[in-house]
Simulated assay, not measured.
Amino acid sequence: MQTEAGTTLTPEPDHATGAAAPTRHRPRLFWVVIVVAVVWLALDQVTKYLAEQHLTQGDPIPLVGGLLQLRLIYNSGAAFSLATGATGLLTILAVSVVVYIIWSARRLGSLGWAWGLGLLLGGATGNLTDRLFRPPNFGEGHVVDFLALPNFPVFNVADMGITAAAILIGWQALRGVSPDGSRSGGDAADERRPDPADD
């Protein structure tokens, strides 16, 4: 069922009465996911381009008193240089993640989840773009990393988006907020209450 305001209501079981209770799905939140993802993807690709234009492998540039370094490397693994050498498998996994996020975004009812999934989609797509279109081969390209902290793997803006997404999604889960905006725990009325961040 869809309201005049464009909010889709999907029946859910009412734990108190057994009757169906509506959960709000907001079509506009799909576009929040897409816009956040596109902006983050653009930021990721622009910074990678600048890194390649102004940095040289093996010649790091210290910033913030050496706390942060600009250090250009080409990573065949996942975020933060994990699973190095498994680029083909990571490409397939990234494509699957992107497709799943886009499919899930159609039924969101929580702004917090929308931001989290948008950052995750933007980060995953940023690194996937490198794997698809950079050397050595299509689907096996190496990801551009250029940000380095002490005792920490070199990373990029896409990795930052993935990390921020994990924090946001984890926070929503700890609050008991489901992707559709409903809340777990408490009485039945609380479980059907939408995420306050949407108001």
Results as ranks from 00 to 15, higher is better:
Thr3Pro: 03
Glu4Leu: 13
Thr7Pro: 04
Thr7Trp: 07
Thr8Trp: 13
Thr10Arg: 06
Pro11Leu: 03
His15Arg: 12
His15Thr: 08
Ala16His: 05
Gly18Tyr: 00
Ala19Cys: 02
Thr23Lys: 14
Pro27Met: 12
Pro27Gly: 07
Pro27Asn: 13
Pro27Asp: 12
Leu29Ala: 04
Phe30Asn: 02
Phe30Thr: 15
Trp31Leu: 13
Val33Pro: 04
Ile34Arg: 02
Val35Asp: 14
Ala37Arg: 02
Ala37Cys: 06
Val38Glu: 10
Ala42Tyr: 03
Ala42Gln: 01
Leu43Trp: 10
Leu43Asp: 09
Asp44Lys: 08
Asp44Tyr: 10
Lys48Asp: 03
Ala51Ser: 04
Thr56Arg: 12
Gly58Asn: 08
Asp59Ser: 11
Pro60Met: 12
Ile61Ser: 04
Val64Arg: 10
Val64Gly: 04
Gly66Ser: 11
Leu67Phe: 12
Leu68Asn: 11
Gln69Val: 04
Leu70Thr: 04
Leu72Asp: 03
Ile73Gln: 09
Tyr74Arg: 09
Asn75Ala: 05
Ser76Val: 01
Ser76Trp: 01
Gly77Leu: 11
Ala78Arg: 02
Ala78Ile: 02
Ala78Pro: 00
Ala79Pro: 00
Phe80Trp: 09
Ser81Lys: 09
Ala83Pro: 00
Gly85Leu: 02
Gly88Ala: 07
Gly88Asp: 09
Leu89Trp: 13
Thr91Val: 05
Ile92His: 01
Val95Ser: 14
Val97Ser: 03
Val98Thr: 13
Trp103Ile: 09
Ser104Cys: 05
Arg106Glu: 11
Arg107Thr: 11
Ser110Thr: 06
Leu111Ser: 11
Leu111Asp: 04
Ala114Glu: 03
Trp115Met: 02
Leu117Trp: 00
Leu120Cys: 00
Gly122Trp: 01
Ala124Glu: 00
Ala124Ile: 08
Thr129Cys: 12
Arg131Glu: 03
Phe133Glu: 06
Phe133Lys: 12
Arg134Phe: 06
Arg134Lys: 12
Arg134Ile: 05
Phe138Leu: 14
Glu140Ile: 01
His142Asn: 15
His142Glu: 14
His142Val: 10
Val143Glu: 00
Val144Tyr: 07
Asp145Gln: 06
Phe146Gln: 04
Ala148Ile: 07
Ala148Lys: 14
Leu149Pro: 10
Asn151Trp: 05
Val154Glu: 11
Asn156Gly: 08
Val157Cys: 12
Val157Asn: 05
Asp159Cys: 08
Asp159Trp: 02
Met160His: 11
Gly161Arg: 08
Gly161His: 11
Thr163Trp: 05
Ala164Lys: 01
Ala164Trp: 01
Ala165Leu: 10
Ala166Pro: 03
Ile167His: 11
Ile167Asp: 15
Trp171Met: 09
Gln172Cys: 01
Gln172Tyr: 01
Ala173Ile: 13
Ala173Val: 14
Leu174Ser: 06
Gly176Asp: 07
Gly176Glu: 04
Val177Leu: 12
Arg183Val: 03
Asp187Ala: 07
Ala188Gln: 13
Ala188Ile: 14
Ala189Leu: 15
Ala189Ser: 15
Asp190Glu: 15
Glu191Trp: 00
Arg192Val: 13
Arg193Leu: 06
Arg193Lys: 12
Arg193Thr: 08
Arg193Met: 09
Asp195Leu: 08
Asp198Phe: 00
